[in-house]
Design a protein around this nucleic acid. Structure first.
Lengths: 226, 226
DNA sequence: TAAATTATGTTGGATATACAACAAAAAGGT
DNA sequence: ACCTTTTTGTTGTATATCCAACATAATTTA
């Protein structure tokens, strides 16, 4: 097996595993490295998937196609990111999505059973790997739940307040920066960018918050409204 | 330890574990059974949680409170259901939600480390338990992703079509039943019930679909529209 | 620095949703 | 069967969003 020149050590999947253990790990997992051209399929809708993919170089798009053939981009996963983990861990028969190379791509494919089934042998890192896998799924779970929390709100203002409130909480401060541009925030909250912008302005005028570019500050507590 | 009279064997967490192994399992996991009165807190916002909860009797509500003190019900978990798994598996410091007994409640609390760390000893079921845990997280992940797929659509019609399309796919038929009442479906898709009802009627008139109570049929393919 | 590009804010008209109120149909209880 | 309660469908009006078009500010490139 050719030596992997860019070990994805920085991936959350391999956190806590020593670099010296890495080559043993790769062979124990029977991990394969595959290259794809732009727009080539990595996983195709309807296939059975028993592997997780780890992006080594480039990025992938996770796409969904509905009954009427309308497609939707579900996720864009960059270097170090993992895809297919939910479907392979849940052992779904047919993949309801497709994974496509968004640019020239190199991925590592690992059979999920190799991760989940401890290999009997002396692989001390196997326990770590399982923990990482659980951690990965759990963190994704929390992210998804948070997003749902925001976008289930009825209107643009409430979606914004829900999102900003949670950002404020994790920053442990009324003042915080967000990792999104306006367009990205609008996409994330599933609202119109222009409507969102004007809503932000309105709230600023009403003294609910202030902002400058990506920096926001929440100004009033519930009590103040009454 | 008192014998557990209502072993939660039907819970996905214990799938594949023999009933005879059950008492060993409980003691190996140091599982505790706790009772709560209605509206009593099981987990409180801000606490550190290192256990998952399994509902034995009754049900719980998962609640969230934002910066302005507005609360929102995130989930209602019934008998056999599991809560707190994402936060304990991801090892988050402070719980961002609260879990409250929705009615007289009995839960089993299991320290997550007891599940994830194999206990060295001859617990054959431990591997099964870990697989179940991973499966649980992965399935929840898929459910959340699906929901996001639907509610990110811009308007009521598209949300409905996205949902109905996915139901059609999993039923492997153009004709299928849905597990929701109109109100529940509206809540799930985060739209107004009345607006949804009239949208359904419109689409029926346009020949896109037909329905009778909970039974739906999708009628046209994309091509037909052009 | 100037010019070009991109990001953000603002506005108005067409369209869609929210809300309330009510009608009709279905389900449940006696 | 009857009455009651719940669910579902319909409609009108106030409100909010979408969309396009443009203005302004920030950033990048030459």
């Amino acid at each position: 097996m050719s030596k992997i020149l860019y070990p994805p050590m920085e991936s959350p999947l391999f956190e806590g595993i020593k670099e010296t253990e890495f080559s043993t790990l790769i062979s124990c997992l029977a991990a394969k490295v595959r290259k794809y051209e732009k727009n080539e399929y990595v996983f195709r809708n309807g296939e059975h998937v028993d592997s997780i993919g780890l992006v080594l170089i480039g990025s992938v798009r996770v796409m969904h196609e509905d009954f009427w053939g309308k497609t939707m981009i579900l996720a864009h996963i960059e270097k170090g990111g993992v895809f297919g983990e939910a479907f392979s861990c849940a052992d779904v028969e047919k993949l309801p999505v497709s994974v496509v190379a968004a640019e020239p791509l190199e991925v590592m494919l690992i059979n999920i059973k190799r991760i989940v089934n401890t290999c009997g042998a002396a692989c001390s890192f196997h326990t770590v790997l399982i923990k990482n896998m659980i951690n990965l799924l759990a963190r994704k779970n929390i992210m998804l739940t948070e997003k749902i929390q925001h976008i289930t709100r009825r209107n643009t203002r409430e979606k914004l307040l829900s999102y900003l409130s949670s950002q404020s909480k994790s920053a442990n401060s009324h003042s915080f920066s967000i990792p999104f541009s306006r367009q990205e925030l609008a996409d994330y909250l599933s609202v119109e960018r222009s409507a969102m912008s004007s809503e932000l302005s309105k709230m600023r005028n009403e003294g609910i918050l202030s902002f400058d570019r990506n920096r926001f500050e929440l100004l009033r507590k519930e009590e103040d409204f009454y």
